[in-house]
Simulated assay, not measured.
Amino acid sequence: MPARRTITARQERLGRELRKLREQAGLSLREAARVTGIDEGKFSNVEAGRVGVSAERVRLVASGYASADAALVDALAAMTGERARGWWAKYRDLLPPGFLDLAELEHYATYLRSFESVHIPGLLQTEEHVRAIYSSSVSELPEDQLDARVQFRLRRQDVLGRADAFRCEVVIHEAALRVRAADHGVARRQLLHIVEQSERPQVVVRVVPFDVDGFTRIGNPMLMAGGPVPQLDTVLLDSAHGGVFMDTEAQLDRYRRVISDVEAAALGVVESRDFIHQLAKHE
Rank of each mutant, 00 (worst) to 15 (best):
R50S: 07
G52E: 10
S54D: 08
S54Y: 07
S54Q: 11
E56C: 07
E56T: 14
R57L: 11
R57I: 12
V58Y: 06
R59K: 13
L60G: 11
L60M: 09
S63M: 13
A66I: 12
A68E: 15
D69K: 01
L72E: 02
V73C: 02
V73H: 00
A75Q: 08
A77N: 10
A77K: 01
A78W: 00
T80D: 00
A84Y: 07
A84S: 13
W87R: 06
W88C: 01
L95Y: 02
P96D: 15
F99R: 00
L100M: 12
L100E: 03
L102G: 00
A103H: 10
A103S: 12
E104M: 10
E106K: 04
E106S: 09
A109I: 08
A109Y: 05
A109C: 09
A109K: 05
T110Y: 11
Y111D: 14
E116D: 15
E116P: 01
S117Q: 09
S117M: 08
I120C: 00
I120A: 00
P121Q: 03
G122Q: 03
L124K: 02
L124F: 06
E127V: 02
H129M: 00
H129F: 00
V138K: 14
S139P: 08
S139Y: 12
L141W: 04
L141E: 04
L141M: 10
L141C: 02
L141G: 04
E143C: 02
D144Y: 12
L146T: 07
L146R: 03
A148H: 05
R149D: 01
F152W: 07
R153F: 04
L154H: 03
Q157T: 09
Q157G: 08
Q157W: 06
D158F: 01
D158A: 10
V159S: 10
R162G: 09
R162T: 12
A163S: 15
A163T: 15
D164A: 11
R167M: 13
V170L: 14
V170S: 04
V170I: 15
A175V: 11
A176V: 07
L177K: 04
L177T: 05
R178C: 08
V179Q: 14
A181Y: 05
A182C: 12
D183W: 06
G185I: 14
